[in-house]
Write a protein that binds this DNA or RNA. Structure first.
Lengths: 342, 342
DNA sequence: GTTAGCACTCTTGTACAAGGAGTGCTAAAG
DNA sequence: CTTTAGCACTCCTTGTACAAGAGTGCTAAC
């Protein structure tokens, strides 16, 4: 299947690159001018005809030039494309863009998405670290007034969240201490996702008369724990997609699709390897049939922590964009690790 | 200037309402059918002709029907429109949408924007509370390990922010205490926006040899204070705008405009009254010439705290949308106040 | 295997006519 | 002075026709 003649490879690569650059089909004559092949246009036509028969090229209509099919893009990405070095300016931009958010992993990912979409002019998607492996590391309760307190929670992957908590009854020292005991014994060291309303009820049952005073705090800690476990999906720079004329009237449909949590979640979790490119109809959703999705995982301490990627038209500039995404995930992983050092 | 005959008012209102509903111009004949006016089409034509001369109506071309001009919309909004009651379902949706975020004013505003854009199918903009009047209410430092600590900051308007802070030297009890003293004496009670790198340097100067150990914390507290003072601008549901065909090719331009912080900021801060409608070219930016902006302020304890509003095509459904926005700002203000009660 | 030549196909742009919707004006009626 | 019928006029839209241009596929010769 990957046994294309050298010449076919040159022709296929040329069609893909031309289409990526211009968005226009290319004909046999123009292709010769571009590649410098020393054969006649008829020969190229024969080759293109075979490439069409093999499914690598499409024709918008009988007498237009050729454009790459999904299979053509796939072959290009897997076998023909050069992986460019990330240029210094882009590296700087990425570093500068996320440096300000060190110490807060969620902000870090947000900034990373922003800078990536700005750099590439496509839409960036990403997931914050979290999920199953998030463990509660620390819980603090700080009284603010007699009827309110700040609750702070820190997780193993460096996520820090806090919220104000209003109380039904005055906060006594005894209640405070009791809360600390509970936090220490039944919450710290646990997976954040385990801490549900149900598990709180077991705790509450053992409290006797303090249950009323404690209730708002337990509810708040529960909510807070869940929000740290919750992986957030970020979408940045969607408006970049509008500049791509291939979407035309489908732009609205695509936007609506991207703004729905659940399918987007499935798209992201569907990616397999370290870096994964999904082209057109390879996507599980019809709404992405005109798009390519590039997704790379960032890892923290050797574990997959989340993904950062791009969504754009199939004629994305793969050669420069893929290295960018790869570089960025590396950078993000390292920065999160740094923040976690003891 | 507002002295239009009753009949002219009926006609103007009818043109506006028809255009809001259908997006199409309306002619004299169809207008009679719609309004039930018992005059001939020629009479209506004369009236329309005068309304055009007065600048309330436009003609896309000589032989099309009439559409409202900016001035026509203005007259409609100011004098002709009915203010509908907010229906129960919408009220419920708004309440439900923001209830889950009580206790965190920023989340509250975010959810409010989401629910508003969902409800109206326009783009929602909003600003979080903050700005000049934000006063630091409380600062806490919680050691996590020898080399890191959590820093928590609470403001007068209920915003609670925290971040992890990495230290150069081990955290001793003395350093902790020293930090508390500084926080208590020079930070708490101050306006958050006053706390700049410069003001920190004055503090640092008085520290002697502890300055090195203290530096990361001071930098962090400074950054945190500034981020609480910083008003955030939220934009939600931009993709709703794509469904409005009047934008056509300008959709991209509009989106790009809306995604820039600074001009959007100016648009919002430009609103005057309690609730402000800006139509088409009344906007200070050309990019909004095809849009209307509705902005309402929410207030906390009698002070303006921020704005929530909508951006949509000029043919927005003002009658239902304006009451919605007004209701929502009321709700938001009350909820923030509740969270602040001692 | 390669190439020149040619008929064929399909898109794009222009031109033009027919049809329709709506106006503005005039002159007569209320 | 207001209202109305009537009519010519304008402009958009739709459909058709036609020519130009680009590119292909095929055939036959090299």
């Amino acid at each position: 299947m990957s046994q294309l003649s050298e010449r076919k490879k040159i022709i296929l690569a040329s069609v893909v690159e031309h289409f990526i650059k211009t968005g226009e089909p290319i004909g046999s004559k123009e292709l010769i001018a571009k590649t410098g092949l020393s054969v006649s246009s008829a020969t190229v036509r024969n080759e293109m005809s075979e490439l069409s028969a093999l499914g690598y090229l499409d024709q918008p209509h009988t007498s237009a030039g050729r454009v790459p099919s999904d299979k053509g893009y796939r072959y290009y990405v897997d076998n023909l494309m050069h992986h460019r070095e990330v240029d210094e300016i882009s590296k700087r931009m990425m570093q500068a863009g996320i440096a300000s958010a060190q110490g807060d992993p969620e902000k870090l990912i947000e900034h990373a998405s922003e800078v990536l979409s700005e750099l590439t002019h496509y839409a960036a998607v990403s997931t914050t670290p979290g999920g199953e492996c998030t463990v509660i590391r620390r819980i603090e309760l700080v009284p603010v007034s007699t009827r309110s307190a700040m609750l702070v929670i820190l997780t193993s992957n460096g996520i820090l969240k806090s919220r104000l908590c209003r109380l039904e009854t005055p906060l006594t020292a005894r209640i405070c201490e009791s809360f600390y005991n509970i936090a220490q014994s039944t919450l710290v060291g646990r997976q954040a996702s385990e801490i549900s309303v149900a598990s709180m009820q077991t705790v509450a049952a053992s409290l006797g008369s303090d249950v009323l005073a404690m209730f708002p705090m337990l509810a708040a800690v529960c909510e807070l724990a869940q929000s740290t476990a919750q992986i957030q999906i970020l979408l940045e720079g969607q408006s970049n997609l509008l500049a791509n004329s291939e979407y035309g009237d489908n732009a609205l449909e695509l936007m609506n699709f991207l703004n729905k949590e659940e399918p987007l979640n499935r798209v992201i979790s569907n990616s397999k390897g370290e870096l994964d490119v999904t082209i057109g109809n390879e996507n599980i959703y019809r709404q992405l049939e005109k798009s390519s999705v590039i997704l790379a995982k960032y890892s923290v301490r050797g574990q997959d922590a989340g993904s950062i990627g791009l969504i754009g038209p199939k004629r994305m500039d793969y050669e420069t964009v893929i290295p960018n995404v790869r570089y960025l995930t590396g950078l993000v992983g390292r920065l999160i690790e740094q923040a976690l050092e003891e």
